[in-house]
């Protein structure tokens, strides 16, 4: 198996302040990785650094063996966001199509091949039924499916998903994480998924990347989400509790970060 993501002594500064620094991180191709951590810790920044949207101030980052470069078709990105404007008048299928050729300049002739590719992708995420509807009118779960299709349509080998489960109900959280898992397992797509609550994806993930206190820690879920480990990372007392049904809840002194589905 080859390496999907490699960070070496990587640091990012934003607005004159270090977000995280001296990060070493290796992610293998085909892994399903959850990125966790309190608000403002730099999870979104981590994805943006891998996309080449935010520059490193120190160190090096590479994706699939090549230095990070903005615009790489290897990574499909789903940014952290509120929902689309309900008045946005563009069809779901057009949005997916933009993921394929939206970065191309100039006019182009109608392309049956691209149209087919878009149709196949939409079918894979199970969104065929509503692909002709304006995207603003779709529900949160429907929008996420469309966005995953958009992220994958250019042939991406890695998905960078920033809180895709936020604002979804439990059923949709499960459906979307299972969809992402199936791409990971059957097509070998590497998945980096930023989550507020680890529990819906706990059965699926190979590894956890925990971002807190300007540091990044990676490892197996049960090794990282532990009282001792997180206390060291936060440099503050943090406690990890396990509920009887196997859910993990992180309680901290400074910023209580709950990983429980019902707590927000």
């Amino acid at each position: 198996m080859s390496v999907a993501v490699q960070l070496e002594h990587a640091s990012v500064r934003l607005g004159g302040r270090a977000v995280w620094s001296d990060v070493d991180l290796t992610i293998e191709e085909g892994e399903f990785v959850a990125i966790l951590g309190p608000n403002g810790a730099g999870k979104s920044t981590l994805l943006k650094a891998l996309l080449g949207v935010v520059p490193l101030s120190h160190g090096a980052a590479s994706v699939f063996g090549r230095p990070v470069r903005r615009g790489s078709p290897d990574i499909g990105y789903l940014p952290q966001r509120r929902r689309f404007d309900p008045d946005l008048r563009i069809r779901a299928v057009d949005l997916v199509r933009l993921g394929l050729d939206g970065n191309r300049w100039g006019l182009s002739l109608p392309s049956p091949a691209r149209r087919r590719r878009v149709g196949e992708m939409i079918e894979l995420v199970g969104a065929s039924r509503y692909q002709e509807r304006p995207v603003g009118e779709l529900s949160g779960g429907e929008q996420q499916r469309i966005l995953i299709a958009q992220a994958l349509v250019s042939g991406a080998r890695m998905l960078a998903l920033d809180e895709p489960l936020e604002s979804l109900d439990l059923n949709n959280q499960q459906a979307i994480s299972q969809l992402v898992r199936s791409f990971c397992r059957t097509q070998g797509v590497t998945v980096l998924l930023v989550a507020h609550d680890v529990n819906p994806i706990l059965p699926f993930i190979d590894r956890v990347v925990y971002v807190a206190g300007g540091h990044v820690l990676a490892g197996r879920p049960r090794d990282v989400i532990r009282t001792e480990t997180l206390t060291k990372l936060y440099e503050a007392p943090v406690e990890v509790l396990q509920t009887t049904d196997g859910r993990l809840v992180v309680v901290g002194q400074y910023e209580p970060v709950s990983h429980h589905a019902n707590s927000h």
Binding site: G71, R81, L98, D101, G102, N103
Partner: peptide, 21 residues
Amino acid sequence: WMGRPLIFASVDPDVAEARGV
């Protein structure tokens, strides 16, 4: 000439930026 990237940047600026627009 810039119509398609402009639509991309208009409806989905974050993704467009990541895709090199």
